[in-house]
Design a protein around this nucleic acid. Sequence first.
DNA 1: GACTTCCATGCCGGACTAGCATGGCGGGCC
DNA 2: GGCCCGCCATGCTAGTCCGGCATGGAAGTC
Lengths: 309, 309
Amino acid sequence: MDTALLEVFVEVARRESFTAAAAPLGYTQSAISRQIAALEAAVGAMLFDRLPRGVRLTEEGRAFLGHAEAVTGRLRAAVADIRAVRTLGGGRLRLGAIPTAEMALVPKAIAAFRRAHPAVAVTHAEGLTRTLTAAVRAGDLDLAIIGTPDAAPVFDGVRLRRLMDDPLAVALPVGHRLAGRDVVRLADLAGENWIAGQARPEETLIAGVRIASERDAEGQDDRTQHTAFQPVIDFVVLEWAAKQGFVAAGLGVTIIPSLAAAAVRPDVVVVPLDPAEAAPRSVFAATPEGVADSAAAAAFLELLTAPAR
Amino acid sequence: MDTALLEVFVEVARRESFTAAAAPLGYTQSAISRQIAALEAAVGAMLFDRLPRGVRLTEEGRAFLGHAEAVTGRLRAAVADIRAVRTLGGGRLRLGAIPTAEMALVPKAIAAFRRAHPAVAVTHAEGLTRTLTAAVRAGDLDLAIIGTPDAAPVFDGVRLRRLMDDPLAVALPVGHRLAGRDVVRLADLAGENWIAGQARPEETLIAGVRIASERDAEGQDDRTQHTAFQPVIDFVVLEWAAKQGFVAAGLGVTIIPSLAAAAVRPDVVVVPLDPAEAAPRSVFAATPEGVADSAAAAAFLELLTAPAR
DNA sequence: GACTTCCATGCCGGACTAGCATGGCGGGCC
DNA sequence: GGCCCGCCATGCTAGTCCGGCATGGAAGTC
């Protein structure tokens, strides 16, 4: 059923005349007559009594009128709603990010986005790069912030946009012999005790050596020097806040991405690793491939890249 | 916008595929493709992302989906509602009746109607014949019960169906010298004191004489005998219940329609007037002319005529 | 009784629509 | 790595639909 018929019906009901309803609707009387006839056939009932001086709603027509007005109104609301999504006056944005990005980068961007577009409902999920890219590919996320050791990674069905480098650094207790250095080389860390992070290679925080060997295995170009360096792992601590506690207590040192350095506690010192030895991780925004970014995703990307520059 | 497009949209959204949605909807894939394209043009936004393995709702499409389902659902409800009105599963019936009909005839019929069709909302208004016929003509009432002294009256824009005769009778106090009679002639009432009813001729309850003279003035056939009878009016009492009180107290007698006789109090006796002297009023059902009766009005008419026979 | 008003309808030209066949694109399988 | 398959888009065509014009029928008005 064409909703234009409903508009005609409502107008005719208001004016109680086919002829009078024709002009404002831009039709002739005969068109109105036929449209009402078509509508009556569609709903299976006479909607108007034809009187000598016009028409009047039947009881069936009266019952239909409220529905017709509701339907046309709802359709108008639907189009307005779509418009709102396009202009960021509504809709939602489903974000995902790796833990280190959740420390400062993403929260700041979300805050700015909320200020700019308060009507958009923002949700976010923390996850690992592989999980996040899968979610983006599956359409469960509109945009994810991921990190890889690879400077030009490829994920099926995912479009990546480089946001920034995230150089590796070492976290030391205040007062450590290397705490005052501008840069630390792996050789400097020989003999240190290590606090290990998660087991997954792509998220590993134990050292550039593992990153290096992983990248060798993948046969990719290797900008990291091979070293004979073998870390001694004393503790495996998953939680970043807990890891800081172990470092602060002098139980060992650990590798952290610079992105997380801003959120470090005062009794821990962060010193960059020599980039020539430990290639920086790259941070990307991931969106579904072959699909236009939603208006909200595009706006969020804009906010992400602006401060990142 | 054709709501068929919305059905297609919902089905495609559910199946995430144009091809898969085509068969259950009875279309080919190309028709679906074009219909979605038309819908997207109508709402001014892409509703689906086209992927290699099918399609997926965009954010705009997701915003639209709820509306589309609501609209199609509401339309289904609208058609069901109309069907309900036709089958007396809903809708309303606006009745009107003259006071004497409201005493027994109409309440009984309404009660029976309610039992048979509880979903129909029945309203009723009491009024005089002229008011009621005007309301029927204006479409404010679906059906009215009216009474006239004329056996074949004509009202513009109103269709009448005869329900019954309503012979006149005289109300007497218990113990009155005429209380035991089967029928009373006007001559028998000479010398009685009279309780007058309303002033309007068509509703007059003062006597057959006035009815007779009125009908003479209209030049219609006169089945009522001319008499020299002149009533002596002692009291003018509008309210029927009060009038009964005056009669019961022996303050006078009054004319009442037989329709009202059933509702008389025990200390009042009703005796029919000789129909040859006082022509019965006729009771009609009035419906709008040139218009099919609503299902509810037709059903009510059926109830009215069945017990009236 | 002629005129006016209002809705219904036969006819026709233009627009729309669905189906068919085909093309382009990408994924999956051998 | 090449071939095949699945999916959506589109040019083309026949059938349908739809609106306007002109007219007819019914009823009210002067």
